[in-house]
Nucleic acid binder design. Sequence first.
DNA 1: AGATGCCGGATTTTT
DNA 2: TCCGGCATCT
Length: 723
Amino acid sequence: MNFLDDLNPQQRKVATTTEGPILVLAGAGSGKTRSIIYRTAYLINVKHINYYNILVVTFTNKAARELKDRLERSFNISAYSLWIGTFHSVCTRILREEQEFLPFTANFSIFDDVDQKSIYKKIYKKLNIDPKDFPQRRVASLISNQKNSLILPKDFFDFNEENYFTETTYKIYKEYQKFLLENNALDFDDLLMYTAILLHDNKVLRKKYADRFKYVMIDEYQDTNYAQFKIINLIAKEHQNLCVVGDDDQAIYSWRGANIRNILNFEKDYKNVLTVKLEQNYRSPKSILDAANCLIKNNSERHPKELWTDITSKEKPKLIKLENEKQEAEFIAEMVSQLTSSGTSLNDCLILYRTNAQSRVFENAFYQHKLKYQIVGGVNFYQRKEIKDIVAYLRILVNPQDTNSFIRIINFPPRKIGKVTTERIERFAEDNNMTLFDAVQNEISTLNGKTVQTVMEFGKLLKKWKNLSLEIPITPLVKKIIDELKLIDIYDDSDDPKDIARAENLKEFVTATQEFSDNFEYDTEKAPMLTDFLQSISLQTDMDNVDEDIETVKLMTMHNAKGLEFDHVFIVGVEDGLLPHSRSIDDVEKFEEERRLLYVAITRAKKSVHLTYTRMRQVFGSISMAIPSRFLMEIDNDLIEIENNRYYDLMAPRPKRRNINKKPVVTENQKYFKIGQKIYHSKFGKGIVLNVDGTGKEAKLSISFSGGQLKKIIGTFVTMGEK
DNA sequence: AGATGCCGGATTTTT
DNA sequence: TCCGGCATCT
């Protein structure tokens, strides 16, 4: 078979060594996805292995989809019958299949951290715990660690010493798990934990999955945690046909329980491991790679390797100092707009920052420059209020035990069922040992005359939709629910720009159901129903919602950039306290992880890298002096180019900004009007700015007035503020 | 029941 | 700076 000629010798070794354990140490851009694809194709097309016997685990849904697409396009392998997915999606699939061995049913809900937060709140109240003494974040993180280490509440003190913090955490953990089971719900960690425990405790099932998945491949192995290690180990221990691919230099998820030792110790965990190193980089020029290598070699614990490349370019990574974060954003926007005017697509530009909070100034700057942008991550689409509301309705129809969702929507949109009534319904449900869903089907005598009817009407409504959900596909169902609840109308009628965005998001949601349906029908030739849709969305990330059809600059955290590549990469806020983050500075392991994060960021670039830092930065509303990241000192001087003309010295008068763009110099005036600004007009009264077209006070404003009118007015005719 | 307004705490990163 | 939670008022 000559399709293997596309690979270099090491990659070919990976693709063709199908039996026994392989560790592939694949540097950034060394073609590891390619190796996995060719290996899969080799298994199927050459070795004639049944589709059914192959399991491929990726780090994101997006990576899984790309893998499937490429297998289909290049090798005509229909990916539908292949198990390719993230750990979480694979586990979900297994758990739904094996409900008879589990303490929950196949239609369980998956709770995200918004749900999680409200559960914790409830438990704190019930157990009378003060969140000030036991910060929810800290407790949740400890509990999450337990789950990732497969420690159930009953085993808690076998692994944790007893002190005032763990005592309480234990109580919360126990209560939390109880609540989830009562709701027939699992959180992200549970998906892994229950799967691992299931395979561990049940010999028959273990054999079933070991027999089914005769060939297992894991991508991004450096970022697996103990539960994930265990799941794979239980499946592959016998046949040992396991290929793991990863790069210890790109391990950036230890805070999520990922254990870098999984990859460092692979050779000890399995026998006669074949180790293959992929060190040729096909992505970045030498000038960029040299800087990255120079940085990462400062880490102590790593598999020794050095990336090299054939690609040459004179362009070294550039380092630019700016006055503050606004100037930083402004500078980047100018750079991007310069690139686009010389023919570069916005799609080839990537902005990377350490924390989501940094994205805001860039939004403003890109908006001003009329550059289309997309923020990936931050608040996930499915975590937005309006989306969670409609999803809560959908969840209840599938899983009536989901009281969390039930409470969320019992009075949304407002139907005059308040706190007192809700409590009475809950009491009634408890007394009669039924779900809230069933409770509201009854005439509850403890309620007031009118309220009884309201509640029953609500119950009937849910019942009606539940029946409907079994008959009609997801899209018409969602349309009908949104319609009957007038969800979009609620927001459309408002003059708050946030509400207008909400209305847009709901429409977007309907589109999402349609897209899902199209794919689902294509893949399975079945009608896309509610349960299918719900299963697909709970594990979706923002990355999966990136619209590839519009040209946009992408903005994301460095964590989100894993596995991606772009021509031009701008890494911003390269300052001590931000990168390395202040919370990681005094712990060696965390500190090295920060270094890897910068390494990942730099190695995304195919053509150019710009690193920026500021002289001072606003944090929490107060301004503080910024210190250039200590990582910058680790990169040899001759590997990086410093742009001096943008260096604003503390004492020196601020140099005039070089006009690198055809557009006029940006003045403060340009930021005079902002979206959401409250204004006053002598004739129309109070209003809110919905859009700003142009610069300064003369900008053309789209204004929504409190009287209901929507007008376009020149800025000079209105005053800022309410009067 | 719903609207308004004040206070206090939060920012690391995500499936 | 902003957001959410809570108290208070209508």
